[in-house]
Design a protein around this nucleic acid. Sequence first.
DNA 1: CTGAAAGCGCTTACAG
DNA 2: CTGAAAGCGCTTACAG
Lengths: 338, 338
Amino acid sequence: MSKKIRIKDVAAAAGVSSALVSYVLNARHVDRINKDTAKKITEIAKDLGYYPNQIAKSLKTRKTYTIGLMLGDIVNPFSHQIARIIEDEAKCYDYAVIAGSCDEDHERSKKLMETFVNRQVDGFIIVAASDTENQLAYLEELDIPFVLIDRYFPEKNFDYIVIDNYQAAYTAVSHLIEKGYQKIALVNYETSLAHLKDRTLGYTQAIADSGRMHDEASICSLSMQDNPQETKNKIAQFIKNKNYDAIFAATNTLGIETLKQFNQLHIRVPDDAAFVCFDETDAVDLFYAKLTHIRQPMQAIGNLAVQRLIHKINHVYEPEPPYQVVLKSEFVINESSG
Amino acid sequence: MSKKIRIKDVAAAAGVSSALVSYVLNARHVDRINKDTAKKITEIAKDLGYYPNQIAKSLKTRKTYTIGLMLGDIVNPFSHQIARIIEDEAKCYDYAVIAGSCDEDHERSKKLMETFVNRQVDGFIIVAASDTENQLAYLEELDIPFVLIDRYFPEKNFDYIVIDNYQAAYTAVSHLIEKGYQKIALVNYETSLAHLKDRTLGYTQAIADSGRMHDEASICSLSMQDNPQETKNKIAQFIKNKNYDAIFAATNTLGIETLKQFNQLHIRVPDDAAFVCFDETDAVDLFYAKLTHIRQPMQAIGNLAVQRLIHKINHVYEPEPPYQVVLKSEFVINESSG
DNA sequence: CTGAAAGCGCTTACAG
DNA sequence: CTGAAAGCGCTTACAG
């Protein structure tokens, strides 16, 4: 075993103090350190294979260079797409990301947050579960910076980066109307989460603007608390009634589940029913009829979230107006709504 | 802001020493601490909302309760399925998981490993990129425990948990043969990675055992170094030649890409070509013909990896014979090979 | 049964 | 230009 090298070892080998080694390696006070000494230290550190112990460093500097990423549900394609982007972007600033999923559960969300707080993450990027405003307020009390993505709380002044969900849904449904579909159904969660409410609103408004009557029977409402089997059953039930000629699925997982049921029941897209859903997943090209979908600007969401968070980390005690960004999404028309 | 409470604050409030608080909260020497004092300390700690600073704790105990998870490619469904399982299992032992992707790249793998080492992870679970044996040897030198999953190095004594890839491929191809398909093609990566070689071997052996001649033209070889577009093009090229009546895709991503090309070129499964692939992904139910596939025991792989790793962490200096587990996979027959 | 003190490996004012 | 020393918030022999 090659024992782990400490700063002390480097200092001894170079015949200087630990302080100097620390200065050189962190490029502090470069102006007033002897060039040759600096060079010697750098070389010796390299020869010995010295890497600073981040734990010790963190204890002293009170910075861990770690971001806690709280996801709603890790199996959701949105989650790992965004996780990947956030990790890459964070790496550019020498931050690591530690991610966890709260599975849309209030309690799990709280536990996860506590775990990350104890691990001294410098800040959070959060896809918030429903009714977790008080957890976020707790973070504010602790002066731990965070930024929300995907979901937001309209009543609060938290920073967020989201898309215009109302507009996205409105566009999608208007497209189906233009295409001549008569009975357009919505599959969505019934929840207090504003972004999903917005999607429902976009749907109902587009229907209303087309001069049609709103029909409760056209909405398939799921609960986020249901287990996968219950969700599946409810969707299957709804599909079987065949009270629609087009379906707008308000989330990617709901969309995929709907398509699976279509397959099961031999309902052909778009002949028997047109289909539009959220997010660009593998399903888009994999389904026999390429899927019309709403494409979120994932890269922008991830990058902005990281940049804003790091800015806040570096200016913790300088209050600023809330940073609330609403990005545009893209509507991609394919065969499934042909 | 409610200032963060330290152990000192609790000690002061309780009128005892920090040492005692530490003992009580960590349940050390419970036998020789006054019950009432202990109770008082516990209550006060709770009232003040005390949580130990994990960084300080780690510095002293040299344990971070963190596992570094190195993935081959985070967008691969295998990766996040297994990541999820590992996170959940690790949580049972109060370990957190910090994950990263090396994108099948040697250099990125090295950087990632160094980052995790500096962050003092207690151990690694690794889906190894090709030719990274020396990186693993480095970990051994540092006495940092690790266990490989999914992939292994037959020449080395590293711990691993994998499936019998040869057998899985052999079974899949034999099934196609029994079904009467005449020209069975393989889509796989050309690589030094043993688990993928095993899959090719299982394929060629099954073909040979059926008394057929091996035909080089039946193998579509990809390179892991190719970018997605190149991979796509090569598969498209291969598909277009139509020199097959069945395809066995040796990885899930290759399988999904193949199916996308089938759609593009209006090749119907299983009428124009039968199809079998690795892994249970959303694609299985989403494709119009339910996919025949090899189902890996993900839960077992993840759980065993975590359990073995934690065992090693707790017994670092007690050498044991290598722990090399080969699990069985399940072959699930569906319509795509009907 | 309990406390004073050292130490984990760094960083950083301060003194010279 | 450089070093001695304090301190981050814990844990843990050791002494009593």
